[in-house]
């Protein structure tokens, strides 16, 4: 279950994350950015809670610029990172 959504300000930042997570064999999905998240680009990366630490490490090490990580809460999204 991919309950977390990572949002970006650039689709190139999102697609770079996609390639890095693929290389690291992290399970994720490329999803459209939910309307509730005011993010800069149309693509988000969704993944499970248990991958959060790993994803944040990769994003940090590779200097990916993110808008934030969000968790679905009913009809809203709460920012967690």
């Amino acid at each position: 279950m991919n309950e977390l959504v990572m949002a970006f300000d650039s689709s190139q930042q999102a697609l770079r994350t996609e390639m890095l997570l693929e290389d690291a064999a992290v399970e994720f999905e490329l999803v459209p950015t939910p309307a509730e998240i005011t993010a800069g680009c149309a693509l988000c990366v969704a993944f499970g809670e248990d991958s959060l630490e790993r994803v944040m490490t990769i994003v940090g090490e590779e200097s990916i610029e993110i808008r934030g990580v969000f968790r679905k809460n009913g009809s809203a999204y709460d920012q967690t990172v």
């Binding site: 190139q12 697609l15 770079r16 693509l43 610029e65």
Partner: peptide
Amino acid sequence: VSAGRVLMRTRMSLGRLFGVSNPN
């Protein structure tokens, strides 16, 4: 999205060639 990946792949190859760790 596929077109976006073309850009990113080329950026990554250029990064490898020029020793640039962050293709962006």
